[in-house]
Simulated scan of single mutants.
Amino acid sequence: MNNTYAAVEPSRGEINALDGAAVVEFGASWCGFCRAAQPLIASAFSQYPSLRHIKIEDGKGRPLGRSFRVTLWPTLIFMKNGREIARLVRPGDSAVIGEALRKITGPS
């Protein structure tokens, strides 16, 4: 699990070209909802220590978040081979996050 929001975001093309399972998380370090969700996300990710987790600092005018139509934080996009499989907005339960993780880490 990645603990730091990246200020420099990858392009949508780079995200779409990802091979295998990945989670793209949009949020901000100062966001209360984002901070509250971190223990839940960490708990769910504990069973997937090698899973790619791309944590993006989002905000007004940030193209990657807009390309995914992100409007609330945190938003987690669960991807497999560059395709969105699941999405959670302001998750309130680590079990729900774990369920989405299983969707992208299981067989195709």
Rank of each mutant, 00 (worst) to 15 (best):
A7Q: 14
A7D: 14
A7K: 11
A7M: 13
V8S: 15
E9D: 07
E9G: 10
R12D: 14
E14Y: 02
E14S: 10
I15A: 07
I15D: 06
N16S: 15
A17V: 00
A17D: 04
A17E: 04
A17P: 05
A21W: 09
A22N: 03
V24N: 01
V24A: 02
E25W: 01
F26Q: 01
G27E: 00
G27H: 00
A28I: 13
A28C: 10
W30L: 07
W30T: 08
G32N: 01
C34Y: 00
R35E: 08
R35M: 10
A36E: 06
A36G: 04
Q38R: 10
Q38M: 11
P39I: 04
P39F: 04
L40H: 06
L40G: 06
I41V: 12
I41P: 03
A42T: 05
A42Q: 13
A42Y: 06
A44Y: 05
F45Y: 15
F45M: 15
S46Q: 12
S46E: 13
Q47A: 15
Y48D: 12
Y48G: 12
P49L: 03
P49V: 02
S50R: 14
L51S: 09
L51C: 07
L51H: 04
R52A: 13
R52T: 10
H53K: 11
I54C: 10
K55P: 02
K55F: 06
I56T: 03
E57G: 10
E57Y: 10
D58H: 06
D58T: 07
D58Q: 05
G59V: 13
K60F: 14
K60E: 15
G61W: 01
G61C: 05
R62D: 09
R62N: 12
P63K: 07
G65R: 05
R66D: 14
R66K: 15
S67Y: 05
F68H: 04
F68Y: 09
R69C: 13
V70I: 05
L72W: 10
L72R: 12
W73Q: 03
W73Y: 07
W73E: 03
P74R: 01
P74V: 00
T75E: 00
L76F: 01
L76G: 00
L76W: 01
I77F: 01
I77S: 03
F78R: 07
M79Q: 05
M79A: 11
N81R: 10
N81W: 08
N81M: 07
N81E: 11
N81D: 12
G82H: 07
G82S: 09
R83C: 09
R83W: 07
R83D: 11
E84M: 11
E84S: 11
E84V: 15
R87E: 05
R87H: 09
L88M: 09
L88K: 01
V89M: 04
V89F: 02
P91E: 00
P91L: 01
G92V: 08
G92L: 04
S94K: 02
A95G: 15
A95M: 13
A95F: 12
V96L: 14
V96N: 12
I97R: 08
A100L: 07
L101K: 02
L101A: 06
R102C: 07
R102I: 15
R102Y: 09
K103P: 08
